[in-house]
C-alpha cells in the first residue's frame, strides 16, 4: 500500500471551527428545506438512495455558487496546511461535493475513503482527502468516530473536518437516533483526471 506523507500528520483529523459563516449555513439549510424532495426516497436496500445531492443535482444557482466557493476554500485550507508542514505541494483538485442527509437509524460502519484493508481494490483510490462541513445539530447522536485513533466527536455546526483517505483514518458514523443530520461532504485529490466539472 502506498505510503502517503500526509497520512499520520499531526494536524489530521483537522478541525476548522467557523469555517462557514452563519449566513452560509442558513443559506444551505434554506436550500435543503426548499428542495427536500430533490433527494428522492430513501431505500433501506440501497444505502445512499435518497440521501445525497451532488453539485450537478443542485438546482439553485446561488447554492451552486456557494458549493463551488466552499470547494475552493477547502482546497486552499488543506493545501495551506500541507505546504506549511511538508513544503511545496502539487495542486489539489475537488472531486465530488454533495449534501448528505442522515435520517434516524442510519449509521456508517468504519471504512477509509481511498483504501481497503488487506490491499483490496478500493473504488475511489484517488480520494486523498475527505472533508465534512456540519450544517445542523438538532439530531441525536450521529457522532463521527475514528476507531484507530480513539476519537469520537460531534463537531459544532459550521465546522470543517478534514482527514486523509488512508486506512489510518478509518471512520464511521454512529446511528442517528432522532432528527435529520445534515452535512456537506467533499473529497480532494491530487489527480487532475478526477477533478469534478
Amino acid at each position: 500500500m502506498a505510503e502517503h506523507p500526509w497520512s499520520g500528520l499531526a494536524c489530521f483529523p483537522l478541525l476548522v471551527p467557523d469555517f462557514i459563516s452563519e449566513v452560509e449555513r442558513t443559506q444551505a439549510l434554506g436550500f435543503l428545506a426548499a428542495h427536500e424532495a430533490d433527494f428522492g426516497a430513501t431505500d433501506r436496500t440501497d444505502y445512499w438512495a435518497g440521501r445525497t445531492l451532488t453539485l450537478p443535482q443542485v438546482r439553485d444557482p446561488a447554492t451552486q455558487t456557494l458549493l463551488r466557493d466552499l470547494q475552493r476554500r477547502i482546497i486552499r485550507t488543506v493545501h495551506g496546511v500541507l505546504e506549511e508542514r511538508l513544503g511545496p505541494q502539487p495542486p489539489l483538485y475537488a472531486d465530488v461535493i454533495n449534501f448528505a442527509r442522515w435520517p434516524p437509524g442510519y449509521e456508517l460502519l468504519p471504512h477509509a475513503d481511498a483504501e481497503n484493508p488487506g490491499g483490496e481494490p478500493h473504488p475511489y483510490p484517488w480520494r486523498h482527502f475527505a472533508s465534512v462541513i456540519y450544517l445542523n445539530d438538532d439530531y441525536g447522536d450521529g457522532a463521527i468516530h475514528f476507531p484507530e485513533l480513539g476519537i469520537e466527536l460531534r463537531p459544532p455546526v459550521r465546522t470543517l473536518l478534514v482527514f486523509p483517505g488512508t486506512l489510518d483514518y478509518l471512520h464511521g458514523v454512529r446511528p442517528v437516533t432522532h432528527g435529520m443530520r445534515h452535512t456537506l461532504a467533499s473529497f480532494l485529490t491530487f489527480d487532475p483526471a478526477h477533478e469534478s466539472t
Partner: peptide
C-alpha cells in the same frame, strides 16, 4: 480534538430527548 470530544459529550443536542 480531545477537547472537542469532551465538548461533544457534555453538550446535549438541541431538541434531544436522550442526549447525544
Amino acid at each position: 480534538l480531545k477537547a472537542a470530544e469532551i465538548d461533544s459529550r457534555q453538550k446535549p443536542s438541541p431538541g434531544s430527548r436522550s442526549g447525544a
